[in-house]
Amino acid sequence: MEFNPNNIVIQLCMQGMGMEQQGKPEEAAGVFLQAWNQATNDFEKFIAAYYVARHQKDLSHKLNWYQTALQFALQVNNDAVKGAFHALYSNIAQCYEKLGDTDNAKISHDLAISFSGLPADKGPFYHGTKADLQVGDLLTAGRISNYKAELVMNHIYFTALVNGAGLAAELARGDGRERVYIVEPTGSFENDPNVTDKKFPGNPTRSYRTQEPLKIIGEVTEWLRQTPEQLQRWRVRLAVNKGKIIN
């Protein structure tokens, strides 16, 4: 199970988030509940339950929904959900604190701390671009963004989802063909803060960044390509993006 922006449950959650931004919390709550009712696997149920929890007015109900989200995340227990454990345990700790249950609040708070820090994702990792590169080449920070000519990148961005890297390649500037390289970090890396906990809990897109070089160790040519209509929607989003980076 991995993040797919074309998944109906993911789309419903994104629709609900849009309603939240428009100041329509009741409508958003209804859409999130619809996402929960349409969820068919543990990953979808984890995502939907998280957003249903946010709209519960009763603290006990909010706690139950966050615990439900956690239970499904623990059943998935892969790199797509591990980044969410910190947020889930933190929210559960806050609920316990407000309910006056200090013992369980401390337990959940300590668990949240245990899941903070650098990601433990082992990859494989991918970087999408239109640049023609070779195995053994190094991708380094300090270059112009693939998406905004006026932006110099302080980090190199990469992902563990080949389809995410493929989308990045399709959207990248340049006239060359889309290339998705298999890359190997040469140093430490961190969750991409542009996506982590900004919309979805944790880092389900498994997007990362580093200031150390990425070494190209291979190339893939097969990924789920976007339709022209889907690509146009992504380009519109990118055009209004305020400095956030895809991939």
Rank of each mutant, 00 (worst) to 15 (best):
T186N: 15
K82R: 11
A84Q: 08
V240G: 14
R225W: 09
A169H: 10
G18T: 01
N91F: 09
Q15K: 11
P5R: 03
V81R: 00
S114H: 04
A28M: 10
Y126M: 14
A80E: 06
G176T: 00
D110N: 09
A131W: 00
I10T: 09
N163F: 10
L88Y: 08
D175S: 14
T205Q: 05
L224I: 13
G187A: 14
R206E: 13
I113Y: 02
A172S: 13
V9P: 08
L33W: 05
S60P: 02
A53G: 15
W36K: 12
A53P: 14
R209W: 15
G136L: 01
G164T: 04
Y147S: 04
P193G: 13
N163A: 05
V81T: 10
L99W: 04
K130F: 03
Y89L: 06
Y157C: 05
D175F: 09
I8Q: 01
E2L: 14
N154H: 11
I216V: 11
D42P: 04
I107V: 14
K57P: 00
D79A: 11
R54L: 05
K242N: 07
H61Q: 13
P119Q: 08
Q230F: 13
E222R: 10
A93Y: 07
A169M: 03
E212P: 00
A239S: 07
Q94W: 12
G100L: 03
P213N: 12
A53Y: 02
L88F: 09
K106G: 05
A131R: 09
P124L: 07
L74Y: 10
